[in-house]
Design a binder for these strands. Structure first.
Length: 675
RNA sequence: GCCGGUGUAGCUCAGUGGCAGAGCAGCUGUUUCGUAAACAGCAGGUCGUCGGUUCGAACCCGACCACCGGCUCCA
């Protein structure tokens, strides 16, 4: 590999507020960073204190955790035997308004660590005592007090509680959150609220939220008949694509197949399950087993007992082996290392012979690796770009399921690019260009790439011990990102164990953030499968593998698109592209309308006709509700002129145009995938 | 998985211990019309499931299931 010089300085990450907020609990902001909190954030931060003040007045034994501002507003976490419900909100809000009217000063003070600890211990505020430990030695321990309420807090705040306008505050919901976000810690009750400078701005925001709710993909999906869930017969998290949603799936797949064909990909097809050995070899078992559906057991009773005995024996031998890894002498059982290895291999062969366990695949890579292994490979075959719309199954925890965005069966726009180290940068750049192409087609301007890198201190533990490959691939990835001017942040220590990765985050129109695509470098798993190609020098080498899924999964991507477009898809994607509406059902009008329908359909336009007796107003209302992209209204005037009257969904009538012109325009718009 | 909430017709919802309801959608008629809803009739439900309390349960209690809001995890 040629060692091109790379910029040494870390790129300036273009920060995103949502992302920063999400990290805030993990990475402490410096005092300086906090000082830069803007006016609205300061206001919300103070509101969190006012909320805690009010809660303590009503429930004096509430234990406090933290109360930061967020992009949406603020929250405060409490531990309390009373369960908060929305019915408590008016009472709490009333008390908060009182606090603002008391116009208390937010007073800052500095305490020593011992004073602070003594103070919170005297109050029994155990979470606060723990939080004290987060503050690095040498950093000032500051407190803010308003009225009777004292909190460990770096600030900053507004000057007085009176700066918060009572009409600008609203409590939103009560939820739960683990202390420090760790599920092993106690669960606290979190009260979410929001605050604005005044009532008008708050009302505006509330209206916006109501609008956003209408864009929820679950709601629009049901309205438009795109998909359904049947948790009773099919199962939770298993989406059924209805005919209209099936159109979206087909169109996306067509787009991806065309794009990938032009980029030199080949397509493969693999089964939805594989034997246990696949996942012990790939390394996904046992670490990933919790996310996989439980295995299908194919053994008879007796065989299963035998397999269990063999597995026990194997575990014992492996334990012996581990115990003697540093010793040259024989173990207590009197076996040498060679004997042990031999015995283990023999048992594994017997277990494999028994077979018996199949797993639904949670990822496509192992199958693709076996396709790579199915034929001898030469360096001349590389790069080999193997694509598949593979269906994967992941047993997501029940609480994680969320409409189409989080499901248990998913179709991935997957591909694995096998290449040499020399080819890596070009391949990676091409993948990157593909992302940008898609962003353009879908008019995505709000996105961010998360570039996850390794921590050199944890090589051999969390990350495979290939320091040179890590360095090279990370440098190349970083370089491509900088060159392309893409909006990205670098996240240290979050790479996969087998290589650095990029996740593409997007924000749907209603502000939900999703990881839609992923792009991972893998220089470990091909080795585990013993994949090699014959190089120029006649030696066998292990290929690098790039795992990429620019459209992520159909499920999540379409869920995202529904919210992105609010169901108003561009013509090429629209499930029903054109509907022809006649004024009445009389001849020769209907014959004329049918001939237009036939012409469009012969050009593969998804067109329907509404030739019944309903009044035209009613037909239009139906079509608008169904979000039909283009309506062609046909009356006597159009028939005489050989014209059609065009109406576009949510854009209204566009006037009468010659039939041939309209047909040609529709066909061209679809072919060009106009936005 | 954890915490909290919810579950009544295809959809949106009313019904808080005494006969299961409305609007929209659907079906059948009538209506023949120029850009967001013509009229009438009909049909539609084991009130999430199972158990308990009660003379009597959609309603009260319990368990389970599913969904919703979060946490954790993630494409």
């Amino acid at each position: 590999m040629t060692n091109t010089p790379f910029p040494m300085s870390a790129p300036e990450s273009q920060s995103n507020p949502a992302f920063e907020a999400a990290k805030s609990d993990v990475q402490r902001k410096t005092l300086e960073q906090r000082g830069q909190m803007d006016e609205l954030m300061r206001l919300r931060h103070s509101c969190a204190h006012i909320l805690a003040t009010a809660v303590l007045r009503i429930w004096p034994d509430a234990l406090l955790d933290i109360g930061p501002p967020t992009e949406e507003g603020f929250y405060y976490d409490f531990e309390l035997s009373h369960r908060f419900t929305p019915e408590d909100f008016p009472k709490i809000e009333e008390e908060m308004r009182k606090v603002t009217k008391e116009n208390q000063v937010f007073e800052k003070s500095i305490k020593t660590r011992e004073e602070a600890r003594a103070y919170f211990e005297s109050k029994g505020q155990k979470f606060k005592v723990e939080r004290l430990g987060d503050i690095p030695e040498g950093e000032a321990i500051s407190f803010f007090q308003n009225g009777e309420f004292v909190d460990l807090c770096a600030g900053p705040h507004v000057m007085r509680t009176g700066n918060v306008k009572p009409g600008g505050i609203k409590l939103l919901k009560v939820a739960s959150a683990y202390f420090r976000g760790n599920e092993k810690n106690p669960q606290l009750q979190r009260i979410y609220g929001t605050a604005f400078r005044n009532k008008e701005e708050l009302d505006q925001w509330v209206t916006l939220q109501e609008e956003a709710k209408k864009r929820d993909h679950r709601k629009i999906g049901a309205e438009m008949g795109l998909f359904a869930f049947d948790s009773e017969y099919v199962g939770p998290g298993l989406a059924l694509w209805l005919p209209k949603g099936g159109v979206l799936v087909e169109e996306l797949e067509k787009l991806a197949k065309e794009t990938e064909f032009q980029a030199g990909y080949v397509r493969v097809r693999t089964p939805h399950l594989a034997k246990e050995k696949m996942y012990t070899t790939s390394g996904h078992l046992p670490y990933y087993a919790e996310s996989m559906f439980p295995p299908m057991e194919m053994l008879e009773e007796e065989e299963r007992k035998m397999r269990d005995r063999l597995q026990e024996r194997r575990a014992d031998l492996i334990q012996l082996w581990d115990g003697m890894s540093h010793a040259t002498s024989a173990n207590p059982a009197g076996l040498t290392v060679e004997q042990l290895q031999h015995d283990i291999a023999k048992i594994e062969a017997e277990i494999t012979f028994l077979g018996g366990r199949y797993y639904l695949k949670a990822m496509n890579c192992p199958h693709h690796h076996r396709i790579f292994a199915a034929e001898p490979r030469s360096y001349r075959d590389l790069p080999l770009r193997m694509a598949e719309y593979g269906t994967c199954y992941r047993y997501e925890q029940s609480g994680e399921l969320f409409g189409l965005m989080r499901v248990r069966a998913m179709n991935m726009n997957d591909a694995h690019l096998y290449c040499t180290a020399e080819q890596f940068a070009d391949e990676f750049r091409a993948v990157n260009d593909m992302y940008l192409k898609y962003f353009k087609i879908f008019g995505l301007d709000r996105y961010q790439m998360r570039f996850s890198t390794h921590d050199p201190a944890r090589l051999g533990q969390k990350f495979v011990n290939e320091p040179e490959l890590w360095r090279q691939t990370e440098d190349m990835v970083r370089n491509v990102l900088i060159e392309s001017g893409i909006n990205y942040v670098e996240v240290p220590n979050e790479a996969a164990f087998y290589g650095p990765k990029i996740d593409v985050q997007v924000w749907s129109a209603i502000g939900r953030e999703f990881t839609i695509a992923t792009n991972q470098v893998d220089f470990a798993v091909p080795k585990r499968f013993g994949l090699t190609y014959r190089d120029r020098d006649n030696t066998d080498k292990t290929p690098l593998c790039i795992h990429r899924a620019p459209l992520g999964t159909h499920e999540r991507f379409i869920g995202f698109l529904i919210e992105h477009y609010a169901g108003n898809f561009p013509l090429w994607l629209a499930p029903e592209q054109v509907r022809i509406l006649t004024l009445g059902d009389e001849e020769p009008l209907v014959t004329y309308a049918k001939s237009i329908l036939q012409e469009l359909r012969s050009q593969f336009v998804r067109v329907e006709g509404d030739f019944g007796t309903n009044p035209i107003k009613a037909k239009i209302a139906d079509a608008e509700k169904a979000r039909v992209h283009t309506m062609l209204v046909i009356g006597g005037r159009d028939l005489e002129a050989g014209a059609v009257s065009v109406r576009l969904h949510s854009k209204g009538p566009q006037g009468a145009k010659p039939r041939a012109e309209v047909v040609a325009d529709i066909v061209a718009s679809i072919r060009e995938r106009r936005p």
